[in-house]
Design a binder for these strands. Structure first.
Lengths: 213, 213
DNA sequence: CCAAAAGTGTTAGGAGTACACCCATGG
DNA sequence: CCATGGGTGTACTCCTAACACTTTTGG
């Protein structure tokens, strides 16, 4: 009786990073049916004695080699027909990986993993497209009233990089002067270091608040 | 092997209403161990071929006799030790019930159900206190940038009732004139009906936007 | 000296906040 | 006529948004 009420529970993760001025998601190519050879989000079963977040972290380590990322539970998807093999409830998470922390492709897992730009998303397996969309919406909203955005930047960054990150995620241009004014008062520390690559060197900043790792 | 990865999945619901100028939660007294005779959130197993939301609606109907309420997924709690009987992952929802729609206590379910004011919450079973707190936080936030609040009011209401509802949930007094100014521009329809009970009659309003049912 | 990106202020409009009195009714 | 809750306006501050030129450097 109890047994009959058990369901398969997985964790799927929308792992996001910024690369080449694009917001990218980590996708894995499925080796087996259903949706063989289609791309899907990394994910896996929740084991009997690990928490949901631990399951997500385990997946994350398998795919990216690191757990030093921002990780947040997103939403739980449980339509009875979302997996053709049977009933699978998935707890979706999203993770933000800073450029330095994103070994381009995965380590131990056999499946082929790739960073794919949001605007080049292929058709995804299962309801994973909906999960990705939910993650983007959440990220955009959080960007407006939190400082999660810094999780997508290296520890030291220029104000131009910071603004670019916002513009990439929100998919709209921002006014440079207004943007800089708003950065005053969120705890940026100006460093005595300079990023020299364009013409005029740009000052480097760092963000004080807690950073895991 | 597959079987070993199955877990028990439940849905728990934080059903909220406003009664006697207090925000109240519907709690049920447990009849069996663990936590026998303690209060808990209404909840139950997700059946094999119903969606998570359907499971929540089913619980809701069992406890309140209606499904004409606002219902939103809250968060999924899955610590391995959250239920002493074994591994149970619960997908928490919260529901907002308008005064007219809240038959004071439940219908079919045998368990004793009660509306309990937030400030009188007893010690709850499992991690249900955390779930309730999560719901309140979510509700407070949503109140600021959405119109969910109207789900806690009868179809026709006075501006004083509207303000009172905000004050109860946010647990702080609001300025009457500023509050009324803000209500302009969210689509309130002034009716030609008057609530007469205090001294001067108060105008009744209604909120246009979609209301289930 | 020139191309390219860095850096910097002002103004106008809208939103939020603080604040106090008169009005209509039922008893 | 009075007690009770209903209803209303203004001034100040702060945030947002629009907008263009000068500075520094490497080549």
């Amino acid at each position: 009786m109890m047994e009959r009420q058990k369901l398969q529970v997985t964790v799927d993760i929308v792992i996001l990073t910024i690369q080449d001025q694009r917001l990218k998601v980590l996708l894995v190519k499925r080796g087996i049916p259903p949706f063989e050879k289609q791309y899907a989000l990394p994910g896996g079963f929740v084991l009997h004695n690990e928490s949901l977040e631990d399951a997500a972290l385990r997946e994350l380590r398998e795919e990216t080699g690191t757990t030093d990322v921002y990780l947040e539970q997103l939403y739980t998807f449980g339509a009875p027909d979302r997996d053709p093999r049977g009933r699978v409830v998935t707890v979706a998470y999203y993770a933000l990986v800073a450029p330095g922390n994103s070994p381009l492709v995965a380590g131990t897992d056999a499946a082929e993993a790739r960073w794919v730009a949001m605007e080049d998303l292929p058709k995804l397996a299962f309801d994973h497209r909906k999960i990705v969309d939910t993650a983007i919406t959440r990220l955009r909203n959080k960007l407006e009233y939190t400082t999660v955005g810094f999780e997508l930047l290296p520890r030291k960054f220029t104000l131009a990089q910071l603004q670019e990150m916002y513009e990439i995620i929100l998919a709209k241009p921002l006014d440079k002067r207004n943007f800089r004014r708003k950065t005053e008062g969120i705890g940026l520390k100006a460093l005595d270091e300079w990023h020299r690559t364009g013409r005029k060197p740009a000052r480097l900043y760092t963000f004080a608040k807690k950073r895991r790792g």
